[in-house]
């Protein structure tokens, strides 16, 4: 079996696995009929669409599949920061006085997925909204700006997100 053929088989199997997980989650039953039906449809759909989800070259593997345990840490950190920032925004709303600024800064992340995740994480934390993401250049609207200096603002806003994302997507 050629390496390309092996990788093709792996792609099909992984697609079936993900589809089966989705099927189990949404049906919520482990009866044989249901399982067989799910497996049949999963294989059918996987044979059809495996090319959409995984790249043809095996070299893409590392940039596609994130490190799951670190990703869970990232989600927990994101939720915690979201709550902290939400309480701060509540205080700004009650106080009724804000100091908004537009800040520009750059990111060191290389992978496109990681950059999109960073932009989304910045938007998720209340108090900052990503306006534009162009290559490695981010334009961010900051509700209570402490500074307009590019590097310092970048460090304050990105915080630990950038470091975590760099670990997750190489």
């Amino acid at each position: 079996m050629t390496p390309l053929g092996k990788w093709k088989l792996t792609r099909i199997l992984f697609t079936i696995l993900y589809l089966m997980a989705g099927w189990l989650l949404f049906t919520g039953s482990v009866e044989p009929v249901s399982l067989a039906l799910g497996f049949g449809f999963s294989s059918l759909i996987a044979l059809w669409t495996y090319g959409l989800f995984f790249e043809e070259q095996e070299a893409e593997r590392r940039s596609l599949i994130p490190r799951v345990h670190l990703f869970l840490v990232f989600v927990l950190v994101l939720l915690f920061k979201m709550y902290v920032a939400s309480f701060r925004v509540l205080w700004y709303i009650i106080r009724g006085r804000v100091n908004p600024e537009i800040v520009h800064f750059r990111t060191r992340l290389k992978s496109d997925t990681a950059r999109v995740m960073l932009a989304n994480a910045i938007t998720m934390t209340p108090g900052t909204v990503t306006i534009d993401l162009d290559q490695d250049h981010l334009i961010v609207h900051w509700l209570e700006a402490k500074t307009t200096h590019s590097g310092y603002a970048g460090r304050l806003i990105k915080g630990s997100f950038e470091k975590l994302l760099k670990w997750i997507w190489i």
Partner: peptide
């Protein structure tokens, strides 16, 4: 969050109040 939409002055700050507080 929806009170913030009334309190804040322009589109960006209102967006901050509504969308992000609603997400939380």
């Amino acid at each position: 969050g929806h009170l913030g939409v009334i309190v804040f002055p322009d589109v960006y700050t209102r967006l901050q109040a509504s969308s992000t507080c609603a997400t939380t």
